[in-house]
């Protein structure tokens, strides 16, 4: 995994060199790579197929992709499948005949688009997968190492709910078949299985990351286990409900909530208002930068599609009460 990270960084550096490395030349002299670079990008087409728009993650990624496209003069468009896998599949199917240069796709699950993505690559379209990947590797993947994410969250909760507490932990998950949620549970297990002092009282799915559901589950569990020690939340937007339940039960500060997400303003607000005490961010602006670099690399790639396959796991950042002052929580206005 470290090797992969290194490769990713190398690619990123290469791209950086290409984009800005010449800025410090002293004497006036035209860069031979420059014209070709810009001409090459003109008229290229990148299409983003997200599972949804309208939430901080996708809006953040999309904003940065769109900004780079505007700057470099290639076309960028969004085909929102709006939480509908069938619509997403339909989109990719028609994209295969439309032949854009790059498709950036956020997979709803591990398998649904796999066959289509392979088909698209065969048809000569670079496919970059974002945050949730299928079991087919394509030109690139950008996203969090979710297992690591789970491990980080679990470690903190275990540390907090060790001896002297009830050790009772509630686990909230996403849709059961979502790989994101499944990998995260794997990460939890990795740690929790080694921690006999912690007792998982309930593992419940919040459906499609519904905060209302998270709230009602938390309420019921708190009712049964007033001495609940920790909650492993699944996503900041969902855990708003979890936090509300904890607050209503008058247990703010007594129940340790760990959440995760893209590190948007909600993350900071949550820490500051005590909604959660621990937060693992997969840094959307950072991911977007990786993504943009992979897009550029793909657009310049002269080799047959599928020759190189790059995975860029996002470095994870931990937010808590102590470091929150130093953390940058992005909003759509501040994202660069």
């Amino acid at each position: 995994m470290i090797g992969l990270k290194k490769i990713g960084m190398a690619v990123a550096m290469a791209a950086t060199v290409l984009t800005g490395g010449i800025a410090h030349a002293q004497n006036s002299m035209s860069d031979p790579a420059r014209a070709g670079y810009y001409d090459n990008l003109k008229g290229k087409r990148v299409v983003f197929v997200p599972v949804f728009m309208g939430l901080d993650l996708t809006e953040g990624w999309s904003k940065m992709m769109s900004r780079q496209a505007d700057k470099l003069g290639y076309k960028y468009e969004v085909r929102n499948s709006n939480f509908n896998t069938a619509a997403g599949a339909q989109t990719i199917t028609s994209l295969i005949t439309e032949k854009p240069d790059v498709i950036v796709v956020q997979n709803p699950d591990v398998q649904s688009y796999a066959k289509l993505l392979a088909k698209a690559e065969k048809a000569g379209i670079h496919v970059i997968q974002l945050n949730m990947k299928t079991n087919v590797l394509t030109t690139g993947f950008v996203g969090a190492d979710v297992e690591e994410l789970g491990e980080l969250q679990a470690k903190e909760v275990v540390a907090h709910c060790g001896s002297g507490t009830s050790g009772k932990v509630l686990v909230l998950a996403g849709p059961p078949s979502s790989p994101f949620s499944a990998y995260m549970l794997k990460g939890y297990e990795n740690i929790l299985n080694k921690s006999p002092e912690v007792k998982v009282v309930s593992v419940q799915s919040t459906g499609d990351y519904e905060s209302a559901k998270a709230k009602s589950i938390t309420q019921v569990v708190l009712q049964q286990h007033p001495d609940l020690c920790g909650v492993l939340g699944v996503w900041d937007n969902t855990d708003v409900g979890t936090a509300a339940a904890v607050k209503e039960a008058g247990k703010s500060g007594q129940v340790f909530v760990s959440s995760s997400g893209g590190g948007g303003e909600l993350a900071c607000k949550g820490i500051e208002e005590g909604m959660w005490q621990h937060y693992v961010s997969y840094d959307v602006p950072g991911q977007a930068r990786d993504l943009n670099n992979l897009i550029l690399a793909a657009l310049q790639d002269k080799n047959p599609v599928g020759t190189t396959k790059t995975i860029l796991y996002t470095p994870l950042v931990i937010y808590n009460k102590d470091n929150i002052k130093n953390q940058f929580c992005w909003t759509l206005d501040t994202i660069r």
Partner: peptide, 13 residues
């Protein structure tokens, strides 16, 4: 008010 936010995606469910 209860969950401190309105999730408009609720329509999809």
């Amino acid at each position: 008010a209860s969950s401190s936010s309105m999730d408009t995606r609720i329509f999809n469910l």
